[in-house]
């Protein structure tokens, strides 16, 4: 094979058009074809197609939201889909929350006291100190698989106890990912219910909290739960 400084344009165009033979295909193009000139398996497509058809028949999905009052952390907005609780947000205006949750979940936001009743009741009980664990299902379809595994791990920390970012990393098999764990928890779509406030820095300090009030909210939630604070 002689070394070529410039790939002749004609040859390149032949490859781009799919009419070059392997012998006249340059190394980079062979490597590229190995990665991209493959098609999804028929079963992969059929699965996607079925899901799409079901969804098109059902039309655009909806997300139901409402407000929860709380003296401990201030008002909250909650949003529920057919799959469970999808968002908890500290305060803010209704229009902002509805717009944000609709965009995030790709659904039409509808205010509904009825659809959110179970979530609001559990949150209310929890914030009054009358509930130790949540039983409502949580909808984590809209986070990445990494974030989902972090949030699931955080969920396993019971009320009154704490873990560190490093602990979570170890539990999900990524012991060096403490920083990524912190980021994943920082964008927890369902704070309080997925108790990211129970996860602290490995040096024993509180770490961070992105909810309104920041660390003072984190401290208040931990105090409510009777956890030993650093």
């Amino acid at each position: 094979m002689t070394k070529r400084k410039n790939l002749p344009e004609q040859e390149l165009e032949r490859w781009l058009a799919g009419s070059a033979t392997p012998a006249e295909t340059p190394a980079f193009a062979l490597a590229l074809d190995a990665a991209y000139a493959v098609s999804p398996q028929a079963a992969t497509w059929r699965r996607a197609q079925q899901r799409l058809q079901d969804r098109l028949i059902a039309g655009a999905p909806r997300v139901y939201y409402d407000r929860v009052k709380s003296s401990v952390v201030g008002p909250l907005w909650v949003a529920v889909t057919d799959h469970g609780l999808a968002a908890v947000t500290y305060g803010g205006r209704e229009t902002e929350f509805a717009g944000w949750v609709g965009r995030r979940l790709r659904a039409t936001p509808v205010r509904s006291a009825e659809r959110t009743a179970a979530v609001r009741r559990e949150l209310d009980e929890y914030l009054r100190g009358q509930r130790t664990a949540f039983s409502v299902p949580v909808d984590l379809r809209h986070v990445t698989s990494f974030q989902r595994s972090v949030l699931e791990a955080a969920r396993s920390v019971p009320r009154g106890q704490v873990a560190t970012y490093g602990d979570i990393g170890r539990w999900i098999g990524k012991p060096r990912a403490a920083r990524a764990v912190g980021q994943a928890l920082g964008s927890n779509p369902v704070p309080i219910v997925v108790p990211c406030h129970r996860v602290l820095a490995s040096d024993g300090s509180l770490g961070g909290y992105s909810g309104r009030g920041g660390l003072s909210t984190k401290r208040r939630l931990l105090a409510l739960e009777g956890a030993a604070l650093p």
Binding site: A35, Y36, V38, S39, P40, T44, W45, R47, A48, Q49, R51, L52, R55, L56, A60, R106
Partner: peptide
């Protein structure tokens, strides 16, 4: 779907991407 699958290199992401495309 094939386009998303090629770019994303993952069947689940391509599936989600297809749903998302048509939802938009």
């Amino acid at each position: 779907h094939a386009y998303l699958w090629r770019i994303l290199g993952d069947a689940q992401d391509a599936d989600d991407g297809l749903q998302e495309t048509f939802l938009r």
